[in-house]
């Protein structure tokens, strides 16, 4: 299965005016260690920059981070921008996605309706996101990890 070993490209960034960088720094390291090619756009990334990078690098996934509470206003129309740019990638969003103390199930529904394939809260480990990516991109986990999952 040569396809499995070929490196899959994901685009990663913090959307809007948000400057929280530690989360994506840790996530980038974990994704690279798991064999993904990571295009890290850094903080304060616009919708257009996500779309351009996804097209330029033929990304299979676009991972959006937001911790400062303005994710909803920042993500309005985002999936139409991706569509117009011809991006056909899985999209995830994670972090603190509402300003205050929210009910996460309500927030998850909200961002699923906006077009995101998966929505994560800020308690999620990188490993969970990586496992979800493997499932959505139909990548079988490498030998070493396969044992731990089945145990």
């Amino acid at each position: 299965m040569v396809l499995d070993t070929m490196s899959r490209t994901v685009v990663l960034g913090v959307i809007g005016s948000d400057a929280h960088v530690v989360g994506i720094t840790i996530l980038e390291q974990a994704l690279s260690a798991a064999g993904f090619t990571v295009v890290n756009l850094g903080v304060q990334t616009s919708q257009a920059e996500f779309a351009e990078a996804a097209v330029a690098h033929d990304a299979e996934a676009v991972l959006v981070s937001s911790l400062y509470g303005h994710a909803e206003q920042d993500c309005q129309g985002f999936h139409r921008v991706l569509e117009d740019a011809g991006v056909d990638a899985v999209t995830y969003i994670g972090g603190n996605l509402a300003v205050g103390q929210d009910d996460f199930e309500h927030t998850r529904r909200q961002f699923r309706e906006l077009g995101f394939d998966r929505v994560f809260d800020s308690e999620t480990d990188p490993e969970e996101a990586i496992a979800a990516l493997r499932e959505d991109l139909r990548i079988s986990p490498p030998e070493s990890e396969r044992a731990t999952i089945s145990s």
Partner: peptide, 28 residues
């Protein structure tokens, strides 16, 4: 709020008006 910190006063205005309409804290 973070939009004002980014000198995005138009976005802050949108958030403020939405707050006035909905009663929610739409800006941080």
């Amino acid at each position: 709020d973070s939009y004002t910190r980014d000198n995005e006063y138009e976005k802050a205005q949108q958030g403020l008006e939405k707050a006035r309409e909905t009663g929610d804290d739409t800006l941080n």
